[in-house]
Design a binder for these strands. Structure first.
Lengths: 126, 126
DNA sequence: TTATTACTGCAACTAAGTTGCAATATAGTG
DNA sequence: CACTATATTGCAACTTAGTTGCAGTAATAA
């Protein structure tokens, strides 16, 4: 059994998600921590935090990977399938706090689902 | 006004979608047409066919781009937001012919939505 | 304090997707 | 049919997200 260690870097990233209740793209995070840690380290820490259920990931509209911490994140599982909203203009993604259930379909065994809503956020509508 | 031309290559790809009523990843298409046309050409033709509303695109679970032709595809617009199902095992994506409406949310202007269901297809359940 | 091994930095790599440009081919016109 | 304008293509070089192997570093349990 591999135990996970709390390092300076992993704590920094974890706290970053706690202080900022929004989603971040990996690119943004790599950039933000550029002078305190390496690119691969960021990727690996995010991977670990997700495995521990501390954050969850999803894809933005161009296939970029995003991460966010939200109330639904537990170490057990991510039953909470909430939609994500991405603004076409500023690219920012927001978790929509609406629990939507996974649709049931015959002939398919569905284990997870991701819903991405694309549009324009309030700030970008002016 | 730029008119679009029907070339040997574009016709080949279009017919490919007509003959096979399933989704293809770009990687698969580039590979399939490797000895009759160039990688960039495939990308550019797909882009054009999508603009013309002949096919539609979406992202698979690893951010790979997929294309498919479906009944809902019209040159006007893609109101038809149907979910896509991807099998974890064989990676194949299928269009689910169920019209699901875009959720309405206050504070957000939603223009489009994508729903990806992930699980295991019948063939891979054995 | 020490030993184990999880974690990190680095540099090199993979793979998807893009781009500029010169050459080619399509479609409209006379 | 011949001719022209320009949409399309091939090519090669590039960009960028994400991955990997390995040697060195640092948590953590004893």
């Amino acid at each position: 059994m591999k135990t996970s260690r709390r390092t300076k870097s992993s704590i920094a990233i974890e706290e970053h998600f706690e202080r900022n209740e929004r989603a971040f793209s990996v690119v943004e995070l790599v950039e933000h921590f550029a002078d305190s840690m390496n690119k691969s380290t960021v990727y690996r820490i995010l991977e670990r935090l997700e495995e521990q259920g501390k954050i969850h990931s999803f894809l933005g509209m161009n296939g970029l990977k995003w991460f966010a911490k939200c109330i639904g994140c537990t170490s057990e599982q991510h039953i909470d399938i909430h939609p994500h909203f991405q603004c076409k203009e500023c690219k920012q993604i927001t978790c929509i706090p609406v629990a939507s259930k996974i649709p049931v379909l015959e002939n398919y065994t569905i284990e997870s689902a991701s819903i991405l809503l694309v549009g324009r956020c309030e700030a970008c509508l002016e």
